[in-house]
């Protein structure tokens, strides 16, 4: 049993007009075995939360802590956080020219496990993971994300999720830009991952559509840099019907 605790997290970014606070005190605890959906309007800071947890250098943590099984991961480098068991599926996965998917996956797996994967089974595992997200095994020989379509990049993220099998996965708008078939493929991948029973997911999304395929245990409304309300699946249904207006107005009135 693992726990990812976000406590009073404040995050700023440098802008042309000086420092701007994006996250304004986020509190959230995710236990293994739980799926938390964070929903919010554009510009509410959802992605900032995802990248701050992963350790992107652009985001300055000004207050608060993020604990993984009691250890403050904000002290760790990006790669140390990943090796501690965190994974971020990115909204816009980065293209890395000249580095093959096969080489990248093997290097990542070796880093995360602390030992090289067994050669005999590894190639099979990679091919199987690619096939499960309907990517042809030939993708293993291509440069990481280079020339992939938007949907292929997202499916590649999910293949990595399955191969690296972290304790906690943060999925940053993995559903955006996907057609219904790709959305199903991606959701199936996430559901296989959570079906292990002891993994935690923070699912960040703008739309309720993906919640038809991935059933969250908790739904949080995220507005103006903090959680505005938390509930169960019924909250998602309410958002579907009413939108974010009420929360945006309430936040503006503060």
């Amino acid at each position: 049993m693992s726990t990812l605790e976000i406590k009073n997290l404040h995050v700023s970014v440098e802008t042309e007009d000086g420092e701007k606070e994006i996250l304004r005190g986020v509190d959230l605890t995710i236990n293994s075995g739980e799926v938390h959906a964070i929903m919010g309007p554009n510009g509410s800071g959802k992605s900032t939360l995802a990248y701050s947890i992963a350790g992107h250098p652009k985001y300055q943590i000004t207050e608060g802590e993020v604990l993984l099984d009691g250890e403050d991961i904000l002290e760790l480098s990006v790669d140390e956080r990943a090796r501690a068991g965190l994974f971020l599926a990115m909204q816009y996965p980065v293209e890395v020219p000249g580095v093959s998917v096969a080489n990248f996956l093997r290097t990542a797996k070796t880093a995360v496990d602390g030992e090289a994967p067994k050669l005999r089974t590894w190639v099979k595992d990679v091919n199987a993971a690619l096939e499960r997200v309907t990517l042809d095994p030939s993708f293993a020989q291509r440069s990481v994300n280079e020339g992939f379509s938007g949907g292929e990049k997202k499916r590649h993220e999910i293949a990595q999720l399955e191969l690296l099998n972290p304790k906690f996965a943060v999925l940053d708008e993995t559903d955006s830009g996907l057609d219904i078939d790709a959305l199903r493929v991606v959701s199936d991948g996430v559901n296989r991952y959570t079906a292990q029973g002891d993994r935690g997911v923070l699912l960040i999304t703008h739309y309720t559509r993906i919640l038809n395929y991935i059933k969250p245990d908790y739904v949080h409304v995220f507005v103006a840099g903090r959680l505005a309300e938390s509930g169960g699946q019924e909250l998602a249904e309410q958002l579907e019907a009413e939108g974010y207006d009420k929360y945006v107005k309430a936040a503006a009135a503060l």
Partner: peptide, 13 residues
């Protein structure tokens, strides 16, 4: 961004 992506998968800097 290249480095961040690779490091976010556990690969040392």
């Amino acid at each position: 961004e290249h480095l961040f992506y690779l490091q976010s998968r556990g690969i040392e800097e």
